[in-house]
Amino acid sequence: MKIAAIQMRSGLDPDANLAALKPLLAEAAEQGATYALTPEVTLIFPENRDQLRLAAAPFEGHRHLAEVGDLARQHGMFVHVGSLPIPLEDGRFANRSVLFGPDGQQLGTYDKIHLFDADIAGLDAYRESATYKGGDEAVVAAVADFRLGFSICYDMRFPRLYNALANGGATLIAVPAAFTVPTGQAHWHVLLRARAIETGSYVIAAAQGGVHQNGRATYGHSLVVDPWGRIIAELNHDEPGVLVVDIDAAAVAEARQRIPALANARDFAPPGLQS
């Protein structure tokens, strides 16, 4: 089937972001895409909690998500919103991914599991967990002849999640992202290729790109990696755009037969210190 990675430059206004998304989805549909993935923080790209509170809306009855469902039905296409912030009862937010079917109905949701909490020398401590609550469930959903594994951005640094998705039946894994430029230049391609190689799966990564309203700059370079770890298509820039690629389920079976790492994996005890 044909799959599409949608590259965006989302800002602080959900209405404007949705307006920017519409022609990109239409272009993907015109090119024959069955499934389209949008980036992380598609509908609002906030810089701080105050901006989140002003624009984030409850999940039930979410107006912009309803419009995306209408677009999926209009184009007869699976549309996967990479993520958007959803307010929770404890005052924090879920970074939630939402998949719509060609009939416009929601088929699955996933809350980003891994949150970036770090103390970096020379910089203030960064605590994503102060604003977001991490999810606790891996998700796989059916998309035509493929099984789609859900992940979001920073998740890509945690191979155990991708191993669980593949063992749960995933043959295509989505990585919507908003990678910074320095980490993108250093790690984007190698991490995505590694996740494809170790699981024998296709990986599709739809990215934010360029300088955003909130002052942040993101790397772009949306791409698709095949189950052998080859980058088969890439938007080699940070401008908004659409990347449409043909994928074949037989390639997953072939890669897993040639390198049966999933089948050969064994449980083991953690290391102990030996003297």
Results as ranks from 00 to 15, higher is better:
17 N>S: 05
197 I>Q: 08
275 S>K: 06
71 L>Y: 01
48 N>V: 05
253 A>L: 09
100 F>K: 12
151 S>A: 15
185 Q>M: 11
212 H>V: 01
232 I>V: 15
262 L>I: 14
99 L>M: 08
167 N>A: 09
92 R>D: 11
157 R>N: 13
192 L>Y: 09
245 V>T: 14
87 P>Y: 01
203 V>E: 10
209 G>S: 06
94 A>C: 12
153 C>H: 00
112 K>P: 02
233 A>G: 10
219 Y>Q: 10
86 I>P: 02
29 A>M: 10
264 N>Q: 14
24 L>A: 04
170 A>G: 04
15 D>N: 13
214 N>Y: 05
175 V>I: 09
68 V>E: 04
11 G>D: 07
229 G>L: 13
267 D>E: 13
75 H>P: 03
79 V>S: 08
67 E>N: 07
195 R>F: 03
13 D>K: 08
124 D>S: 13
133 K>E: 10
248 D>T: 03
262 L>Q: 04
235 L>C: 00
136 D>V: 04
11 G>N: 03
275 S>A: 14
29 A>F: 07
269 A>K: 11
184 G>F: 03
53 R>Q: 14
179 F>D: 10
31 Q>E: 13
234 E>N: 04
205 A>Q: 06
222 S>T: 12
249 A>L: 12
234 E>A: 10
75 H>F: 13
16 A>V: 12
70 D>P: 02
135 G>F: 00
175 V>D: 02
12 L>T: 01
169 G>T: 07
35 Y>P: 06
86 I>V: 14
238 D>T: 01
244 V>G: 10
129 S>R: 07
72 A>L: 04
15 D>M: 07
95 N>Q: 09
187 H>A: 03
48 N>T: 04
180 T>P: 02
71 L>K: 02
239 E>C: 08
67 E>F: 13
5 A>W: 06
96 R>E: 06
46 P>R: 01
3 I>K: 00
182 P>H: 02
246 D>F: 07
176 P>E: 04
22 K>H: 10
264 N>T: 13
100 F>G: 08
208 Q>C: 01
160 R>W: 13
201 S>A: 15
27 E>W: 00
74 Q>E: 15
41 V>C: 01
132 Y>D: 07
76 G>S: 08
46 P>D: 11
154 Y>L: 01
9 R>V: 05
233 A>T: 06
156 M>D: 07
92 R>G: 03
127 R>N: 10
